[in-house]
């Protein structure tokens, strides 16, 4: 095994181009487990820890450009206002020790259906910025990033530079089912973001299909129902039948399996429950925000 230690982003891209089989290692919280258990013996490890750019983030007009290696702890501490869904999801990852090392770049690199960042990224809307020495930069929409169980859209010579996550324009929630509050891989997870500016709702489902997915039919149904009932304007409580239909459509968007963590039917059921709850929480907070702005006016 060789240990490649690029000092800059350009050097890292050059190393990845020269050795496309090299396995990048950032926080190591996925890679080192595989090495410790002899599940993986890469020819080259490509250490990304010395590349300072990957640990920085920029808050722009519409989105946050989040460096690939920014640890979950930093996201929780610094980006709760801009990226509430991702900050909530980050807080549910493992333990402080793991959150101090692991980040969204590694979560995307692994592309596990159970990765907690994915539902939040799908719900808020995001693009993955990847780069290669030969072809330069491209932005991959998050909906096109997940290709299969632990497979993503990266080419062998590409590295993830950053994720551009849309800044929240409304309430966001993240919910996860597991046996404990800490150190738990999701049995299933759900992310929801209200986007009052476009009067749309977006979702993300984790650990209930071969890849993280959006519940698109559920989104379309809810968008239409909210529009028809004038809910965005009148701020009324969402009708229980609408919430129920939304939850059922979210369950229907799942394509889960039975495994040690849970059965397929439990996952489908739990995703529906989380969909209904997160809809209630976010809608209540949208109504609350409306009341305060109207009260102030």
């Amino acid at each position: 095994m060789d240990f490649l230690r690029p000092a800059s982003w350009e050097e890292a891209l050059a190393a990845k181009a020269a050795h496309p089989t090299a396995v990048p290692i950032a926080g190591g919280t996925d890679v080192m487990v595989e090495i410790n258990f002899d599940h993986r013996r890469p020819e080259y490890l490509l250490d990304l820890n010395r590349i300072g750019d990957l640990y920085e983030w920029e808050v722009g007009e519409d989105s946050v450009r989040l460096g690939a290696s920014v640890p979950y702890t930093r996201i929780m501490e610094n980006l709760r206002a801009e990226l509430p869904g991702l900050a909530l999801a980050s807080h549910t990852v493992a333990s402080p020790q793991i959150r101090n090392r692991g980040g969204v770049g590694g979560n995307l690199g692994t592309a596990s259906p159970a990765g907690d960042a994915h539902p939040a990224l799908l719900a808020s809307g995001a693009e993955v910025e990847v780069e290669s020495a030969e072809r330069g930069t491209r932005l991959i929409p998050i909906d096109e990033f997940y290709k299969g169980v632990k497979r993503n859209a990266l080419q062998p010579d590409e590295l993830i530079r950053a994720v551009h996550v849309k800044k929240a324009d409304g309430p966001q929630q993240f919910s996860k089912v597991g046996t404990r509050n800490a150190m738990v891989i999701a049995v299933c997870a759900f992310g929801l973001a209200l986007h009052p500016e476009t009067r749309t709702v977006r979702t993300g489902i984790g650990s209930a299909a071969p890849t993280p997915v959006r519940a698109k039919a559920a989104e379309e149904f809810l968008n239409a129902a909210l529009e028809e009932g004038g809910f965005w304007d009148n701020g009324k409580i969402i009708t229980p039948s609408v919430a129920k239909q939304f939850a059922d459509l979210c369950s229907a968007a799942c394509n889960p399996i039975d495994d040690v963590r849970g059965t397929a039917s439990y996952r489908r059921h739990a995703v529906g429950v989380m969909a209904r709850r997160t809809l209630t929480w976010t809608w209540e907070s949208y109504r609350g925000a409306r009341r305060t702005t109207e009260g102030a006016a």
Binding site: F3, M32, L45, D47, P96, Q97, N100, R101
Partner: peptide, 15 residues
Amino acid sequence: GVPVCSCLVAAGQVE
């Protein structure tokens, strides 16, 4: 300064 699991840090990363 940051608490981490030393089993998940590659030796070369601590240079």
